[in-house]
């Protein structure tokens, strides 16, 4: 299983540690909110709305170097628009991995 990394953030920052810190703070704030919103929509069976949040989360998976996770999120987002939740379990595993990573770097 792939693991999140900070390679992309370091590429963008060009070694600017102030930016790196600021950016990680943003991710640490933004990701839990998006996850919560996604879960709420999923529980209310608002799958179209869930798909919109998956769209945003997908970007963060890319930022954290989760290429397989990014690809799965693309598929899951499309599936949700058609009411298909079969990739839910795999997607939630990815969310958990990201959550753990965010806690670790906090």
């Amino acid at each position: 299983m792939e693991h999140p990394n900070l390679d992309y953030i370091k590429e963008i920052s060009g070694g600017n540690e102030v930016f790196e810190k600021k950016f990680l703070n943003i991710i640490q704030t933004e990701f839990p909110k998006e996850k919560e919103e996604y879960m709420e929509n999923l529980e209310s069976e608002k799958l179209d709305e869930s798909a919109k949040i998956v769209h945003k989360i997908k970007h963060k998976l890319g930022i954290l170097g989760l290429q397989e996770g990014y690809r799965l999120a693309i598929k899951y987002e499309e599936d949700l628009k058609y009411g298909d939740t079969k990739l839910q379990g795999q997607f939630h595993e990815i969310l958990h991995t990201v959550e753990q990573f965010i806690l670790k770097i906090a």
């Binding site: 963008i12 920052s13 600017n16 930016f19 950016f23 943003i26 933004e30 970007h59 930022i63």
Partner: peptide, 17 residues
């Protein structure tokens, strides 16, 4: 952009120009 992380990345990239 509604994502703060996306805005931060574009802003940082713009600094190099």
């Amino acid at each position: 952009d509604d994502e703060a992380s996306a805005r931060a990345i574009v802003a940082e990239l713009c600094k190099t120009i």
